[in-house]
Design a protein around this nucleic acid. Structure first.
Length: 1095
RNA sequence: GCGCGGGUAGCUUAGUCGGUUGGAGCACCCGGCUGAUAACCGGGAGGUCGCAGGUUCAAGUCCUGCCUCGCGCACCA
């Protein structure tokens, strides 16, 4: 403990910056962890940001919540280590470098040299590291950035390799041929979570195509929105139970627009339900049948030779598929095996020929059609439509009207490359997968055990995702990332390497088998192209090349719980004691990202969940509710606020603006408001206390006083403190940080500042030693230090300054002010540490009825002002008498009340009827069940009773019956209201059984004594204002002259009072008629004119 | 299209188990109070509780449908 020093003026920004310097010198972060090293561990895991983008305010929000929980748990006594992390691999990095170096194709990169390119990537990921570091430090996010995990580190990559090998050994890793969204420009396919980033609404031509049956004049109609897949068509799918019709065109269509058409007499087949939608001609139905009857029919390929038949017998026939619906199209699904997921599965089952008509560059292969070969598929829509609609169609075997029935523009959301904006092609390709479908039940089970905040993200959004889990496509045809550690021989043998040591062994084995290899040292760089250079040897002596992929960078971050410790190569201890982690926290957009990949990796590798609690944060929107994004240019720079209101106010604002999981509309004005209300007020309370404590040499350690000895006002604020701290803690436990902080702010501003401090000012002004002042100092000391501790996790700066000055220690070394053992349940309850409980402080005693009564007193004080306004009596003119009518016993508050109300004397009026009358009100809750539909009528009778007193009596006597319903005491509420005609007002506190009504009556009669007192107060107030205007020291003495006209008599006592209050050493009260100084200030009150000079 | 979360005063928001008079803060107007404060207190103005039905004696609150914003899923043929 220390004796408080004076507080000084507030400059939040420089105060925070100075404190940052102090923290740095004291190594405050590390020592705050160190000092709790005996406590139970609370494991936090940092989701690694990528430092090749500038940090924005949304990053500050996420980091504020991470920090908040870690600091809170730390103060509770937990040992909370916080390792930083950086995400450094992946497509965003490559694209950034590609743009900068103008290497917009894979050929260009390879021409430039993969090693050079990857070197550029390696450097690029640190572009904004210092910006991130500065932001992180300035906002006081305590995280260890000096020893972070970095996904490009060899150790980290090695752990990822190890993890992958675990999957490989469990046969969860496989090489497959799947249809994936693919970007020909970046030459890479995407996993579902990446695809989700790039949906855009586009309008494209869709076509209805005639597939001319063999041995039949009719054609089957099918629809597609991707004409470029038509050359790849090898089958038509129908629903076996769907009803189809064969129709004949009976007359020409009118107003035909666009390409295509059909002649009278032509026959087409389609789903019955869709005739109206599809057909533009009048037709006659020839036949109706189920899809199953179509199965097996064969038709003419649209582009003969584009796809070789191979040994397939089912090519270009009609197939059955359950998933075919009649919601759109024609009820017949055009199937191009290589360009649709359903198509691919169907094709594999049915044995359709599986050949590409499109190359990896997005252009048609040679041999597709002379007019299409080598052209980018998305630019061929027109050409294909033209070919189809030519007479007899593209294959020359169709009807004279061609193979196109009609075209229609179609708008839908279509996936686009989230980096380059190009439309993605669904494309069957070689890829590596983790068999997530095999562990789906485990994923769901583990997810059930996670405490989600809010819970609906876990059950809903994330649960939904898991229930529909797909195998994870983890390979990327890219350069900068963790290389896939699988080597493969031409005959298909595969080897997955799980460590550097294993790689060295295998390389040595290959060398001794006669395969030449570069050196493979202990510190071999585990990136491309180095690892590509190694050729291993298969069991049969064949050379094995590495599969030329890197991993989805989400796999990297999913490995963070163990790769950050280089597990298992570090011996495993660090990991064993920290897994699964207690707490993670990121934006809700990570549901499919990090939240998923963490669980995916932990489930497949360890058969365990990765985290116990997950706080999922809402998006950050701008003040208009629009998502913040670089392209919109509506990103708020955190420094705007760090440099204006400071990080404390910024953080407090973010937490109080709404629930953590609700979208936050970031309003700059709100930060300012938070600063003005919360922090300025807190500072002024502190300044008030510290200045006087310093003046009086108050020593909180020795000048103590038992709470029970202190005045009621002190016991009240201490009880409030205990109540608020308790609910604060409970709200923290249920993740309702916003509620907690709003309530605390309300306590600071209203209870503490506007009532306790305002009521206590005069107590501290007294220069003599006395018990009352001592009590106040003790109370302020306790309340302030406790508030500091409660605020500290959220806004760590100002409260540390205050706490250090009052207590001598940093608030971040202090204990959370709830010392009840077990209060930490939910953290790591399994190993709750008694010591941590003992270390936390105790709160002052609670007295709820005292709190309730004070509430009433404050209500009455406000009521008094209302009465005066209504009666036109100014506040400074005292009333002789005030009566309190009914209500609980407030006698211990009469002093406070008399001062607040400015009345000479408070009395309790026993004769309630003198000022009050009663009103009866129905209690619907009790009355409704027995009164049923008559309740409103009965309620009306009760409310409007002309004689409520006798009605009450009969109710009490049990003889009151209205409309056949017996009314009992519990069916009504008795309300007391003031009688009209008095300067009085009635307030109601609470409702139902707790309700109490209380009236306040003020005596409006004047006496010479009251007029004199009132005048003295007005004069004093004006002089004080003048002193303030003149910037006089509080202790400074003044010379005072006063002139008055038309004034009531000013008694000696009141004259003396003015002199004392204004610290006047010389004073002249001029008799009426004296010449008033030209320098005098003048004011008028109730007809009296007063002039005065202050010197 | 499906799912989740919103829609309450000009703005930001609270609103418990359905209970009859929907609270705050900011901004605005009038008044008061003040030798801690960018403060505070009283009053005023400002509300179709997204819309429409329904259940109920009683709906901001429960149910159904719709509109709208945000997010996610599926966007498939």
């Amino acid at each position: 403990m220390a004796q408080p020093k004076p507080a000084g003026e507030l400059d939040a920004v420089s105060m925070e910056n100075a404190l940052l310097e102090t923290w740095k010198q004291e190594n405050a972060f590390q020592s705050s962890i160190e000092s709790r090293k005996d406590g139970a561990p609370f494991i936090f895991l940092e989701g690694p940001p990528t430092a090749n983008g500038k940090p924005g305010i949304h990053h500050v929000v996420a980091r504020a919540y991470k920090d908040l929980v870690c600091r809170w748990k730390s103060m509770e006594g937990f040992h909370v280590e916080r390792k930083g992390g950086w995400d450094t691999h992946g497509l965003p990095v490559e694209i950034e470098v590609q743009k900068r170096m103008d290497l917009m194709s894979n050929e260009a990169i390879e021409a430039y040299g993969m090693d050079n390119f990857n070197q550029a990537c390696r450097e690029s990921v640190w572009t904004y590291e210092s910006a991130w570091r500065e932001m992180t430090e300035r906002m006081a996010y305590w995280v260890d950035l000096d020893n972070p995990y970095v996904t490009l580190d060899n150790n980290y990559v090695e752990s990822c390799w190890w993890a992958l090998k675990q999957m490989f050994d469990k046969e969860l890793l496989y090489r497959g041929h799947k249809v994936l969204p693919y970007c020909p420009q970046t030459g890479t396919s995407y996993s579902s979570h990446e695809v989700a980033l790039g949906y855009k609404e586009v309008e494209e031509p869709s076509v209805y195509v005639k597939f001319k049956l063999n041995d039949d004049d009719a054609s089957i109609l099918a629809w597609t929105t991707t004409p470029w897949t038509l050359p790849g068509n090898v089958g038509l799918a129908v629903g076996p139970d769907v009803t189809y019709v064969r129709v004949r065109i009976s007359e020409d269509a009118e107003n035909w627009s666009g390409a295509g058409g059909a002649s009278v007499g032509e026959e087409v087949i389609l789903a019955k339900d869709l005739m109206k939608e599809v057909l533009r001609h009048n037709v006659e139905i020839i036949e109706e049948f189920h899809g199953s009857e179509l199965v097996g029919r064969s038709y003419e390929p649209l582009f003969p030779g584009a796809v070789p038949a191979g040994d397939s017998t089912s090519g270009w026939t009609v197939l059955a598929a359950d998933w075919v619906t009649t919601t759109d199209g024609t009820g017949v699904v055009h199937t191009a095996v290589m360009y649709g997921e359903d198509d691919y599965h169907l094709g594999m089952e049915a044995g359709l020929p599986a050949y590409h008509t499109v190359g990896m560059d997005g252009a048609f292969n040679k041999g597709t059609h002379p007019k299409l070969d080598g052209r980018y598929v998305k630019e061929c829509d027109e050409a294909i439509i033209e070919l189809l609609s030519s007479p007899k169609g593209s294959n020359g075997k169709g009807p004279d009207s061609g193979l196109l029935y009609r075209e229609k523009s179609y708008s839908h959301d279509y996936p686009h490359c989230w980096r380059t904006d190009h439309p993605l092609l669904y494309y069957a390709m070689d890829s590596w997968f983790v068999k997530m479908t095999a562990v789906k039940e485990k994923l769901l089970e583990f997810n059930d055990g996670v405490e989600w905040a809010p819970d609906w993200v876990g059950e809903g959004r994330f649960g939904e995702w898991l229930r529909n889990v797909k195998d994870w496509a983890i390979s990327r045809e890219r350069y900068w990332g963790t290389p896939l550690p699988v080597w493969r021989s031409e005959d298909g043998e595969m080897k997955c390497i799980g460590s550097i040591a294993e790689l060295q062994q295998e390389v040595a084995k290959a060398v001794s088998a006669g395969i030449s290899n570069p050196e493979c040292p202990d510190d071999v760089d585990l990136h491309r192209p180095i690892v590509d250079g190694f050729t291993l040897v298969s069991s049969s002596g064949q050379p094995m090349q590495r599969e030329p992929f890197v991993m989805d960078c989400w796999f990297d971050s999913g490995c963070a719980p163990f790769a950050q410790w280089h597990h298992p190569f570090d011996g495993g201890e660090k990991f064993d004691s920290s897994f699964p982690v207690d707490y993670i926290c990121e934006g809700v957009d990570q549901t499919r990202g990090w939240f998923y990949t963490l669980l995916a990796v932990s489930t497949t590798v360890f058969d365990m969940p990765a985290y116990k609690r997950c706080l999922s944060l809402g998006l950050i929107l701008d003040a208009e509710g629009k998502k913040m994004s670089k392209s919109r240019g509506n990103i708020v720079d955190p420094w705007d606020h760090f440099n204006r209101e400071g990080a404390d106010a910024t953080r407090w604002y973010m937490v109080t603006a709404g629930a953590p999981w609700s979208p936050l509309k970031f309003d700059s004005n709100g930060v300012r408001e938070t600063y003005a209300k919360m922090f300025l007020t807190l500072w002024n309370i502190y300044k008030f206390h510290a200045d006087y404590a310093a003046l009086d040499g108050f020593n909180p350690e020795t000048d103590t006083m038992d709470v029970s000895q202190r005045p009621v006002l002190d016991r009240w604020i201490l009880s409030r403190l205990a109540t608020v701290a308790n609910s604060y803690h409970n709200d923290f436990k249920s993740w309702n940080f916003h509620k907690a902080c709003r309530d605390l702010e309300d306590f600071v501003v209203n209870d503490l500042s506007n009532w306790y401090v305002r009521r206590s000012r005069r107590r501290l002004w007294d220069e003599a030693e006395n018990n009352d002042k001592l009590a106040c100092q003790n109370t302020l000391h306790e309340v302030l230090t406790t508030v500091c501790r409660l605020v500290a996790p959220v806004s760590p700066f100002m409260v540390d300054v205050i706490h250090r000055n009052l207590d001598g220690r940093s608030v971040h070394q202090a204990a959370w002010p709830l010392g009840v053992p077990g209060s930490l349940e939910g953290a790591t309850a399994d190993n709750w540490d008694e010591k941590a409980a003992e270390a936390t402080a105790q709160l002052p005693p609670q007295d709820l009825s005292l709190e309730q009564n004070m509430e009433l007193v404050r209500e009455l004080a406000e009521t008094g002002r209302r009465i005066r306004v209504e009666a036109g009596r100014r506040q400074r003119l005292p009333c002789g008498e005030g009566w309190i009518v009914s209500g609980p016993d407030l006698s211990q508050f009469h002093d406070i009340l008399a001062e607040e109300l400015n009345v000479e004397h408070i009395a309790i009026e026993q004769d309630l009827d003198r000022f009050q009358q009663i009103e009866l009100a129905p209690n619907f809750r009790a009355l409704a069940p027995k009164a049923r539909s008559e309740v409103n009528a009965i309620a009306g009778e009760i409310k409007n009773s002309k004689d409520p007193i006798s009605m009450l009596e009969s109710i009490k006597a049990g003889t009151c019956e209205i409309m056949g319903v017996k009314i009992e005491e519990s069916d009504i509420e008795v309300r007391r209201v003031e009688r009209s005609g008095f300067a009085a007002s009635t307030v109601q506190i609470g409702h139902g059984d707790d309700a109490s009504q209380i009236s306040l009556v003020l005596d409006m009669n004047d006496t010479p004594e009251l007029l004199s007192k009132g005048l003295a107060r007005d004069i004093t107030r004006r002089i004080q204002a003048k002193r303030k205007d003149l910037n006089l020291e509080i202790e400074a003495n003044i010379d005072l002259e006063i002139w008055m006209s038309n004034a009531p008599e000013l008694f000696d006592d009141d004259r003396q009072w003015i002199v004392n209050e204004t610290r006047a050493s010389g004073v002249i009260f001029h008799p009426e008629g004296d010449v008033i100084s030209t320098e005098a200030d003048e004011f008028e009150v109730d007809g009296t004119t007063v002039s005065f000079t202050v010197k």
